[in-house]
Simulated assay, not measured.
Amino acid sequence: MSAPALQAISARAPRSDGVEARQRLLYAALALFAANGYAKTSTREIARAADVNISAISYYFGDKAGLYAATFGEPMGGNAGDFVSLYDAPDLPMEEALRIFFTRMVEPLKQGEIVRQCIQLHMREMLEPTSQWAKEFERDIKAPHIAIAGVLCRRLGLARPDDDVHRLTFAITGLAVQLFVSQDLVDAIRPSLLNTPKNVDTWAQRLTGYAVALVEAEVLRRKAIAKPTAVPAARSGRKKI
């Protein structure tokens, strides 16, 4: 691991016992797993980067797999699936549900380099899946998707999502995902858009508005399809020969 990465770990979690030692392990593992993958990262290497005894891994996380699982959610303040119940309530207005969804989704962007490593880790897991992938898919991808589809069904008056609801759900959740994936591009083109916690909060507000507009466009599209086509009245008079 590079010297800047090691310095970042030290800055985030000063050497100490207990909670801080666990935190050092977590961030060291995140950086190494993101850069090298699960199979190519050893527990000895993680312990050395965190400047702790290797036995601390089993003490705090059980084993290497337990530490790997922890790096997916803890550094970002929790997993995406942990917040589904906050916006999935049947009586919650659609715009409020979407606001909660986007606020929770973009919150990790306030953490800077940590979230970059988390995204790198998730992308690597998709390309080089381990047993963790099935858990990540069910909890942090499928569960939020199903919840947002339910929110849209309530607005559209549907009992269950059809293909277009799923298309719309992918489009809406993709607004947040794309922001994470394109973080470096945003920084290169317009760094002011993500450079403060307030500006990250603005993203949540704007994405909510964009998503509402997409839903209302779908409402109008469905109404247009359902509207019966008027039949032109027959013209009177004789037919010209």
Rank of each mutant, 00 (worst) to 15 (best):
G66E: 15
N199E: 15
R124C: 11
I189K: 06
M94K: 04
T43W: 03
D63Q: 08
L6T: 12
L193R: 06
D17I: 02
Q120W: 08
S42Q: 10
H122N: 15
I114A: 05
H166P: 04
L175C: 07
I114T: 09
A28N: 02
Y59M: 10
K223G: 08
M123H: 05
Q183A: 13
M1E: 07
A176D: 05
R238Q: 13
I189E: 13
V165M: 02
G237V: 00
A3K: 05
A211D: 11
T208P: 02
N195F: 04
A147S: 14
F101L: 07
S192C: 04
D82Y: 07
V165I: 10
R190C: 09
P144E: 13
A8R: 10
V231T: 08
D140H: 09
L152Y: 02
P129G: 11
N53D: 15
G78F: 00
Q117V: 07
A31W: 01
S85D: 15
L168N: 06
D88P: 05
H122K: 14
I57W: 04
M76T: 07
P228M: 08
F61Q: 12
H145D: 15
T173S: 06
D88W: 02
A31K: 01
D88H: 06
L127Y: 06
K239P: 11
I241F: 06
D51P: 11
L220F: 06
T208V: 01
N199P: 11
T202Q: 10
R206V: 14
R44T: 13
V106D: 14
L194P: 05
A89F: 01
G157K: 00
E20D: 14
A29I: 06
A3T: 11
V19K: 08
L168F: 02
P232N: 04
A230K: 08
E128N: 03
T202I: 12
A39Q: 11
S16P: 07
P161N: 03
L67N: 01
I46E: 08
P90Y: 04
Y60R: 06
A11W: 04
D184W: 05
L179F: 00
S131M: 12
L207N: 07
R154H: 03
R99A: 14
T103P: 01
G81V: 09
D91P: 02
Y210M: 15
T229Y: 03
E95G: 00
P75D: 06
G18Q: 08
A8H: 11
A13D: 09
T173L: 07
G77C: 01
L185P: 01
R104Q: 11
M123Y: 03
L185Q: 09
A143C: 09
V231A: 07
V186C: 04
N195E: 15
R154P: 07
F170Q: 14
A176K: 00
L121A: 11
M94V: 08
P191C: 06
R116K: 10
P232L: 04
L175E: 07
L92T: 03
A147W: 03
D184C: 04
E128L: 00
V177L: 12
A149I: 04
I146S: 12
M105I: 08
L168C: 02
T103Q: 10
Q120G: 15
A69T: 13
R48S: 05
E107G: 03
R222Q: 11
L127M: 14
